[in-house]
């Protein structure tokens, strides 16, 4: 019963919006505005075809590669930078500089340096998506509790064990906040990196549809991106609930 209720909450508003959309477009003859039924048909037609293997899968694999690398590298460098005060002070202005560069401007540059290939696209994703994880990890590592840190020293928990049992777990709420932001950035950059110079991928497909006035097909691509975003967010929430169960419990008690 509780489960059904949750599902009802989850799909309630989307269903209402689709109904509204349906009502508003029922008499529409505008070629550029899609109708729900029509869009669903086009969606199945376009994406449940060989495009799934040619465009969707490559995009997803670039996205996931970029995202996973961003998270792993972000946590790794974040822990190193956050643990060493000199490194932190040295790197702060540099990190702010790199973070301030909008990653899309790097696409032409990386195209020249790396070439037009998957590595370039993954690099663009990493260059944009690493910062939230990195900076949040630095913050989380820096903010570890002093008493817990003393506790580790007293019980001679040092080196790798200290990171594994203490620092990483202690910084995990901040890290998860960073990951959440990275996911949306990575999705945006996946599309952008494919729009410039590419022969496959969702970004490429959408631009191609747009240029050939295949408007319903273009809409279906946008819908697919939205659905991917929702799926990623669901996977994230599921993971976060597990990883941070202690954190939410603790906060509940403190209140």
């Amino acid at each position: 019963m509780r489960f059904l209720k949750q599902i009802a909450y989850f799909v309630g508003l989307p269903i209402a919006l689709i109904l509204l959309w349906w009502v508003l477009t029922i008499d529409s003859t505008n070629f550029f505005v899609p109708k729900p039924g029509q869009l669903a048909e086009t969606f199945v037609e376009v994406w449940f075809s060989e495009r799934f293997f040619v465009d969707v899968l490559p995009s997803i694999s670039r996205l996931l590669t970029g995202l996973v690398l961003s998270i792993v590298l972000g946590i790794l460098f974040g822990i190193i930078i956050g643990s060493v005060r000199i490194l932190r002070q040295l790197s702060e202005p540099v990190l702010e500089f790199f973070r301030a560069i909008p990653p899309p401007v790097l696409v032409p540059l990386l195209m020249l340096i790396i070439g037009i290939n998957d590595q370039m696209k993954v690099m663009v994703i990493i260059f944009g998506a690493i910062w939230p994880v990195l900076l949040n990890t630095v913050e989380g590592v820096r903010a570890v509790d002093e008493v817990l840190s003393d506790t580790c020293r007293v019980y001679r928990i040092s080196g790798f064990a200290r990171f594994r049992y203490f620092v990483l777990r202690s910084a995990s709420p901040q890290i998860m906040t960073g990951v959440r932001q990275s996911i949306s950035i990575a999705l945006i950059l996946m599309v952008i990196s494919e729009m410039f110079a590419s022969s496959s991928g969702l970004g490429f497909a959408i631009v191609q549809f747009q240029r050939t006035f295949a408007v319903p097909q273009m809409w279906s691509g946008i819908l697919l991106l939205g659905l991917m975003g929702v799926s990623l967010s669901l996977i994230f929430q599921f993971t976060e609930k597990r990883v941070l169960r202690w954190y939410y419990g603790l906060r509940e008690v403190d209140r």
Binding site: V147, T151, F166
Partner: peptide, 22 residues
């Protein structure tokens, strides 16, 4: 010179000396 192996400490701030994720 560093925390000795044969010594243990119980801190005042129990809430901050136990690992909340364990």
């Amino acid at each position: 010179t560093e925390p000795p192996k044969s010594l243990a400490v119980v801190f005042q701030e129990y809430g901050r000396s136990l690992f909340p994720w364990m």
